[in-house]
């Protein structure tokens, strides 16, 4: 397999979450893991991001690729401004250009005039948009999005989905969502899963 999870086993203590799970992924394009809460989708995403190591099997084709993640929680630095949250994720580079890019992305998610605020001054939905802007603004080859539109109203969710669709061209997108319409709009492949342990439905 060129890219994906191959015969992967992973357990939290004695609770198996993935048992010989295989998920082939394309080099580019969208794949959605669609299934009930708690079935092991987030663990699969963590394995792809390199945040957990498989106890058996392998993660193929992810080494060396720049990954951007929207976690289930926002994971923003509450002591930094929104702009800083974005520029810090961009890595090394021209600071002025990074600040301009951060401002641009904040504007695209509807928070352009709030770049100097801190995340704890925002509502849950606004923080979610910042987390999404961070992932989209950062140079990456792979986008791993774990329920990226939760806490967003319908209109904002649609706007954010359109932004993801723009950015994902030429990249691999792995999406977890509970809304089938979102899955179908963004991904060529929707993989129905169940578990735990995670299996194809």
């Amino acid at each position: 397999m060129k890219c994906g999870l191959e015969d992967v086993c992973f357990a939290y203590g004695d609770k198996p979450v993935l048992q010989g799970f295989t998920l082939p992924l394309p080099d580019a394009g969208g794949v959605c893991l669609f299934g009930p809460s708690g079935c092991g989708k987030t663990t699969a995403l963590r394995l792809l991001a390199g945040l957990a190591l498989p106890q058996a099997g392998r993660v193929a084709g992810m080494a060396g690729r720049r990954v951007a993640v929207v976690f289930q929680e926002d994971r923003l630095l509450t002591w930094c401004t929104l702009e800083q949250n974005l520029t810090l994720a961009m890595g090394k580079g021209d600071r002025r250009a990074q600040r301009a890019l951060a401002g641009d992305w904040l504007a695209r998610v509807g928070l352009g005039d709030q770049a100097a605020l801190r995340p704890d001054q925002l509502s849950g939905g606004m923080r979610r948009r910042v987390a999404l802007a961070r992932a989209l603004a950062c140079p990456s080859d792979v986008l791993l999005l774990d329920e990226p539109f939760k806490e967003l109203d319908e209109e904002n969710a649609a706007r954010m989905a359109a932004l993801v669709a723009q950015v994902m061209r030429g990249k691999l997108l792995v999406l977890i969502t509970h809304v089938r319409a979102q899955a179908q709009a963004l991904c060529d492949t929707v993989v129905d899963v169940q578990g735990p342990p995670l299996t194809l439905a």
Binding site: V69, F71, R75, L88, G91, C138
Partner: peptide, 10 residues
């Protein structure tokens, strides 16, 4: 969670 975020974004 923040440490993981820092690891992902290098």
């Amino acid at each position: 969670g923040l440490l993981e975020m820092a690891a992902v974004y290098r």
